[in-house]
């Protein structure tokens, strides 16, 4: 993942006069042909043009039509995010780009697996918190648990922060998947 560009970089007289407003976080849904190299095209576009990727998920969503859905969480000025959308649309195997944040009313979820190790009171505390967050235990040993937690990014961040003093070992996260509310497709 790219680090956000340093805010202290001097503005060149050639740098866009558009780039002076606030940084926003947007979730883009990108429907693509599931063909070799398509993910590389998308990721290469972001790295080549200096855009940020906060998270990215990809999987096939319609086998017969060879369609994959890429969900990208990106940050930038509103103008930069508009550019990102247009640049993505230029890629030949891309069917559709939708800015779910701009469109409003999307549901976003992420899945995380969180490994916590400890003994005695730590185990009890971990289980109590997991229950409060509705995390499921998907693996257990005498001195560890693996929790599965689904939710928005903030909830997962919060759960991980709470596990840290208890005995957090490692985390695997899927990145955000998102879909619009209501009856219609994007």
């Amino acid at each position: 993942m790219n680090a956000p560009s340093a805010p202290s970089a001097p503005l060149s007289p050639y740098s866009s006069a558009l780039g002076k407003s606030n940084i926003e976080v947007h979730t883009l849904s990108v429907l693509v042909d599931n063909e070799p190299g398509v993910l590389a095209r998308v990721v290469g576009l972001f790295s080549g043009r200096g855009y940020n990727i906060e998270s990215l998920t990809v999987a096939e969503v319609a086998h017969a039509e060879h369609l994959s859905r890429i969900t990208i969480v990106t940050s930038g000025t509103p103008e930069a995010i508009e550019q990102i959308g247009h640049q993505l649309e230029r890629l030949v195997p891309i069917h559709k780009v939708t800015d779910l944040t701009l469109r409003g009313g999307a549901v976003e979820r992420e899945l995380a697996m969180i490994k916590v190790a400890g003994k005695g009171a730590c185990r009890d505390e971990a289980l109590r918190l997991a229950d409060a967050f509705r995390a499921r235990v998907i693996d257990a040993s005498i001195e560890s648990f693996v929790f599965e937690l689904t939710g928005n990014v903030g909830k997962i961040d919060q759960f991980i922060d709470l596990m840290r003093p208890i005995g957090l070992v490692e985390v695997a996260r899927t990145g955000v998947a998102a879909i619009s509310r209501g009856p219609n497709p994007i």
């Binding site: 007289p13 050639y14 740098s15 866009s16 006069a17 558009l18 103008e79 508009e82 550019q83 247009h86 640049q87 649309e89 230029r90």
Partner: peptide, 28 residues
Amino acid sequence: TGRLDAFSPGSKKIHIDIDPSSINKNVK
């Protein structure tokens, strides 16, 4: 364009292009 913040400061701009990403890329 030369210096962008001093580029044609008093004009309205119409931009015709087949590539939507060219519009609003450097200049509003």
